[in-house]
Simulated assay, not measured.
Amino acid sequence: MAERLIQSVDRAADILELFLDGESELSVKDISEKLGLSKSTVHGLIKTLEHRGYLQQNPDDLKYKLGLKLFELGSFIADKLDIVQIARPFIKELVDELRETVHLVVRQQDELVYVAKEEGPQTLRISSHVGKKAPIHCTGVGKAILAYQNEREVDRILSTIKMQAFTEHTITDKEEIKKQLQTIKENGYSLEDEEIEFGLACVGAPIFDYNGNVSASLSCATPKMRLTDERLPEVIAGVKNAAAKISRCLGYKDVPHY
């Protein structure tokens, strides 16, 4: 048996959701025509929403726009989102799929912090732990985040941090790193090839929040010998897909479905 819906509440939600189509302001007539409701019905619903702060009227053209109450509620929800809790089932799913170690990191100023890790079942594993910090310029997770910062912020970070070379493969030239970042942004994933540790390879992907900002990323880390040319496309697809699912759960609308 279908649940009984309250028609007036359902219609009020329809009015609010009209603004998801990109309209910044709507008149009573606009809403009436879009929803197929009488102007009198729309007027009553709008006045109730306005009274509660969900809509506000522009005194110049008498049209309505979203009110600050929705911003207040949205900010509250955003503050309560726990990325680790949200990401955990997708991390487990990815580990089961690829049988390799998966990391979740967040940006903390100009460094990274591992906030979640799940080991793969393989005998050779990765030396890392939750709470460990990592450099942003030479890790797959770091470059996946750095690639989605604006140019000014990238320049600031690369000029501020110590561009340490951990192996002979670590790239420390700023312009070369910026070229890599452009490629990462075009492809939607990053690669790390023994830049932080000999014998270690990594595929990373950005995680977007509801504002479209990137301050977290997901990665699959594996001994390089297991990331063969034949297997690489599978790992890339898996990491991008898992990161996209987490982004959608955080409220990001534009992430593609892989």
Rank of each mutant, 00 (worst) to 15 (best):
P223T: 07
V105G: 00
G140C: 09
V255D: 02
T101Y: 07
I77A: 10
E50S: 13
V255H: 02
K240F: 06
Q56K: 13
T228K: 07
F76Q: 13
S127F: 08
T170K: 03
Y258F: 12
D110Q: 10
K92M: 10
D193I: 13
A2P: 15
T41E: 08
L124A: 12
A12Q: 14
I145K: 04
V154C: 09
Y114H: 06
R107M: 14
G251Y: 01
I136M: 11
S75V: 08
I157C: 02
I171W: 05
I157N: 05
D60C: 01
T228Y: 06
E192F: 00
A2M: 13
A2N: 12
P206K: 09
N150Y: 07
T167N: 05
Q109F: 06
S32A: 15
A237T: 08
S159L: 09
R231S: 03
E175F: 06
L112V: 07
D193S: 10
I177M: 02
H51L: 13
R52Y: 15
L146S: 03
H103F: 14
G36Y: 07
I157F: 05
K117R: 15
K179Q: 15
A216D: 02
V84R: 12
I171M: 11
A87Y: 04
G53Q: 04
S219D: 12
A216T: 05
V9D: 14
V105M: 11
M225R: 11
I136L: 14
K178R: 13
D82E: 09
G44D: 10
T160P: 01
L124D: 12
T139Y: 00
N187E: 13
N187I: 00
G44R: 14
R11T: 09
K133A: 05
L104R: 03
D229R: 12
K132Y: 03
F90H: 15
D193K: 15
G199R: 09
T48Q: 14
E197L: 10
G44W: 07
E192W: 00
G120C: 05
D209M: 04
H43L: 13
L232C: 05
I171V: 15
D96L: 10
P256Q: 10
N187V: 00
K34A: 10
A242I: 07
G74M: 08
A244H: 10
R99K: 15
Y54R: 06
E119W: 07
A242S: 14
R156G: 01
C202Y: 01
A244R: 08
E93T: 08
M163D: 04
E197F: 04
G251D: 04
I236R: 04
Y148L: 00
A205V: 07
Q7M: 10
L124K: 11
Q85L: 11
E153S: 10
L55M: 12
L218P: 05
N211G: 10
I86V: 15
L49R: 05
I145A: 02
K240D: 07
H43E: 12
S27W: 07
V203D: 08
D193M: 14
I46K: 00
D110S: 11
L62F: 15
I91E: 06
I184W: 04
I236W: 03
A221E: 13
G74T: 08
V42P: 00
D110Y: 11
F90W: 10
D155A: 11
V95F: 01
H129M: 06
Y114I: 13
L98P: 01
S75A: 13
G74C: 03
L94P: 04
L37S: 08
H103Y: 14
I83D: 05
T170N: 09
L218Y: 03
L94Y: 01
L227Y: 06
L191P: 01
R88H: 11
T222K: 02
V203L: 09
